[in-house]
């Protein structure tokens, strides 16, 4: 299956497990202070303050939600106006199949106040799709395999242990130094993790 790419296991990083969120926070601060940049923490609950320590900011989801919402509003109103025959009134001819001009109680063809409920629902629907799709895309879901799962103790990251990983792609990465720093910070377990064969 190899496409000329080297798929032999490579070092992924050094993973340390901590017993509490506070210890993880302190350890992350120490690792950042030591100058490491490529790192990530793993926890069963969101640990507040961790993102600040890691200098991690990501507001793309907010922009995605805004874009989804605006698209929904435009699509919702456009759908009703166009299929209701509004374009014909301003001289743009569309095939007859694309529109059906209802005369409801003598109301104008483009009676926009009556179109707000459907426009609103389309706005909400597309915002929700954008947010959930964006969340999956940014978190890389679904992705059943990740090198971090190779760590022995990592199954507790979703239960009651807090992990910090300094990745091998960090220019300053040196397994032994990272490991001793982690031990200093009170790590329960320290492992050097390899990527899996074929990845």
């Amino acid at each position: 299956m190899s496409h000329g790419r080297d798929t032999a296991p490579k070092p992924y990083g050094t993973v340390a497990g901590f017993a509490t969120a506070d210890e993880l926070l302190a350890a992350t601060q120490a690792v950042v202070n030591a100058g490491y940049k490529k790192l990530d923490a793993y926890s069963p609950v969101p640990v507040h303050g961790l993102a600040d320590v890691m200098n991690f900011k990501d507001f793309r989801l907010h922009y995605g939600a805004l874009a989804g919402g605006l698209t929904g509003a435009v699509v919702g109103m456009g759908l009703q106006a166009i299929t209701g025959g509004a374009l014909n009134r301003i001289g743009i001819e569309l095939p007859a199949m694309w529109q059906y001009a209802h005369n409801t109680g003598g109301k104008p063809i483009f009676s926009w106040p009556m179109f707000i409920p459907v426009m609103f629902e389309c706005t909400i629907l597309l915002t929700a799709f954008a947010v959930v799709g964006g969340l999956f895309a940014l978190c890389g879901l679904p992705k059943p395999h990740h090198p971090i799962f190779n760590a022995e103790a990592f199954h507790r990251a979703s239960q009651d242990r807090y992990f910090l990983c300094v990745e091998a792609t960090d220019p300053r990465y040196a397994p032994d130094q990272v490991a001793s720093l982690m031990h200093e910070m009170g790590a329960e377990s320290v492992e050097h993790v390899m990527t899996s064969e074929g990845y």
Binding site: A51, V131, C139, L141, P142, F149
Partner: peptide
């Protein structure tokens, strides 16, 4: 679970997503 690993970066996005979903 789609391979959820509870990464701090993912949690940040996750909390944003929850708040926006609650907001809408």
């Amino acid at each position: 679970s789609m391979g959820w690993k509870g990464s701090a970066k993912d949690w940040v996005r996750y909390e944003h997503a929850s708040l926006i979903l609650a907001g809408i």
